[in-house]
Design a protein around this nucleic acid. Structure first.
Lengths: 304, 304
DNA sequence: CACGCTAGCATACGGTGTACGGAAAAGGGA
DNA sequence: TCCCTTTTCCGTACACCGTATGCTAGCGTG
């Protein structure tokens, strides 16, 4: 196995607490340890956390996936010198994904880009999955986080805009993580900053999470639409260069008007033309809705 | 090439109008033809459509992708009898995708499921891409469309709920079509019905499209979250069975509390616990926002 | 029966991720 | 200096993928 230099955890654990991490002694890591150190909510938090966690299972698969992100290995002093850095690999991967989308991201392709053999990449990265994680993390590092003290509305707007810029700069991100974003440091930084914008508005915590999800989702949708739209003029394919061709010949050859009267009407009126604006317009509406929710939460809190 | 029994179109066309379709003479197909037949908006529509379409290019790739959906071949009378039907193949593909997600959908796997050789599938389906299209179309056929006369709000709510049910029933759909839904009959039926719910509310056509996109997007996001959540209890993997394992060992081993104070606080307060309700709650908020947009459109229309 | 059309499929090609094991280079200790 | 350990580098190989090609078996029709 590659990457044995990273510390190995015990398998299915007996005492999850003791086995925590080898190089302890700095700052508390893990919610349980944190609560015991009195950082957040002390004992109650520890109980809650441990109850929720139950038996912590560490599969090598999981360890492999998280280790590089959270515990990057120190550069080796002994042995043959490396031609590349991890960042070289990640950057090359990003470049490949930039033109051609995530489908084009093959290990052999990235290796060729770097002028090395395919298997050499596995010196730097345990596999393709982890490479993608690292690429995502690197992309999120560009995020210009809203500051801590800012009032919630401009801060949340900034969060949305930054997310928007991120997707437009790295459309391939939308092709990853169908279900959830990877547990990468800079990704969590962004989420932290996002939550921070509205956590002190008096909303119940569940709604805080829900609302941030709403914003994420909204931006993601707008970005998807905008990228698909851009693929029309740019032939710089995200794999969808020919979508417009399809569209054209479809409208002409197969579209049945009396089956789709509304679509025809909307089409004729130009409803499908506009690229639904550069975010701002409808984002304000969303923020309005959120503001209403915040006001409502404030009033019910003072009433009940 | 398989499927030569489907009619061939000319290549890059000279006169897009004349070449339209071989078996004409029934009902008008194509927006241009439709407008000329006086179905929708007559001459103005035809001009608009033709201006927008420009030269219609028909690549064999596109034809191949749309032909089966819109022009299913008549069952052959001559030659050896088929063991399977197209629907058998599509249903088997859906079954495979149901357990194991879209990644597990390989031609060989589907063939094995049906007890035939891998290449036999290509008698029924031109390729994997088209199989997925057909699967999506079949799934959308389950859609219980809102009726034409219904008032917009319950109709749109029904649309959202049906979409929601669709995603929960067929989570693999979320793994397809990163940018746009396929141009399949039942998919367009759903979109038609969706647009129909709000097209007569006085909103400008562009906003009609935009709002339906918003709803689609919202539902999609909620479904994604809900499915990811469900993967926790169900080990019936959408490929994410081990996500929760990851989560657990992550919180315990790598999470740094003072880097993520807000997340810790929200976590301790249980903000990440709830599966954010079965759609209804926040959908009403979205509908509220839409209602506001409709009211605004009505007032500005009467004013200006 | 023989012809022609069709379904069914074995084989093969070029692609993928990656396990394995050997070769090459560098540093540290004897 | 030599050697030994550590690390990089990567050729080869395997299992899997989608699918082009072309053969064969079954069927309806002349």
């Amino acid at each position: 196995m590659t990457h044995d230099r990273t510390h190995e955890h015990a398998g299915p654990t007996d005492d999850p607490h003791a086995a925590a991490r080898p190089d302890d002694g700095e700052r508390p890591r893990g919610v349980v340890a944190a609560a015991e150190a009195g950082v957040a909510g002390a004992v109650a938090a520890a109980e809650h956390a441990r109850a929720n966690l139950g038996e912590v299972v560490r599969t090598p698969e999981v360890t492999r996936r998280l280790a590089l992100l959270w515990d990057p290995p120190a550069p080796a002093t002994r042995g043959r010198k490396a031609r590349l850095t991890l960042d070289d690999v990640v950057r090359a991967g990003t470049a490949v994904a930039q033109e051609g989308g995530l489908d084009a991201l093959s290990m052999r392709r990235v290796a060729t880009e770097l002028g090395v053999g395919a298997m050499s990449l596995y010196t730097y990265v345990p596999g393709r999955t982890e490479l993608v994680d690292l690429m995502v993390d690197r992309a999120y590092a560009e995020f210009d986080l809203p500051h801590a003290g800012d009032p919630w509305r401009p801060a949340l707007a900034q969060y949305a805009h930054e997310m928007w810029r991120l997707y437009l700069r790295h459309p391939w991100i939308l092709q990853t993580n169908m279900w959830r974003a990877p547990l990468a440091p800079h990704v969590l930084d962004a989420q932290e900053a996002g939550l921070r914008t509205i956590v002190d508005t008096g909303l119940p915590e569940v709604q805080v999470v829900e609302i941030l999800g709403l914003v994420d989702n909204y931006v993601q949708g707008m970005a998807r639409a905008s990228i698909a739209e851009a693929a029309e003029q740019d032939a710089t394919g995200m794999g969808t260069d020919e979508y417009w061709t399809t569209m054209n010949s479809f409208w002409e050859d197969w579209f049945e008007v009396e089956r789709y009267p509304t679509m025809t009407r909307v089409y004729v009126a130009g409803g499908f033309d506009a690229p639904q604006g550069p975010l701002d317009a409808s984002l304000e509406r969303l923020l309005d809705a959120i503001e209403m929710a915040i006001d409502r939460a404030g009033s019910t809190a003072s009433t009940g």
